[in-house]
Amino acid sequence: MADEATRKTVSEIPLLKTNSGPRDKELWVQRLREEYLALIKYVENNKAADNDWFRLESNKEGTRWFGKCWYIHELLKYEFDMEFDIPVTYPATAPEVAIPELDGKTAKMYRGGKICLTDHFKPLWARNVPKFGLAHLMALGLGPWLAVEIPDLISKGIIQHKEQQSS
């Protein structure tokens, strides 16, 4: 599955309770509250561990999410926009996180810049429905992906540091 550090990080993200998707009206609001609570806690944990690495927000229905994620490599900060839709079958299926600006730059992506998760992710997610939420998706999906792909893309010269960005 994941390395020890990821395991520990994930264990500190609160689990969700409500098994509800965007097609359920009131229960979905409850699920969304839990999603935000878990995300807030996870960002707080990251800040406390000096490892703040993403922000996420949604439209008011909570069906479309967007935000930023960043990766520090040799003291330079590489920042990317990310986005995803909540599938109608959520939380039984995890959303597909996309970083559109990296589309076509790595083979570890599907069309539209959707990141290609490891074989471990799907079974792990399936075994933890409905307890895992978007914070877990960040920690187990996007985080490890960035950690592998970004240094690789930098070393190949495919992405460059944007001068304007503060490091």
Binding site: V10, P14, L15, L16, K17, L37, R127, F132
Partner: peptide, 10 residues
Amino acid sequence: EGASSGQTVE
């Protein structure tokens, strides 16, 4: 069983 156990959201 086997699924992650831990704190749920407060």
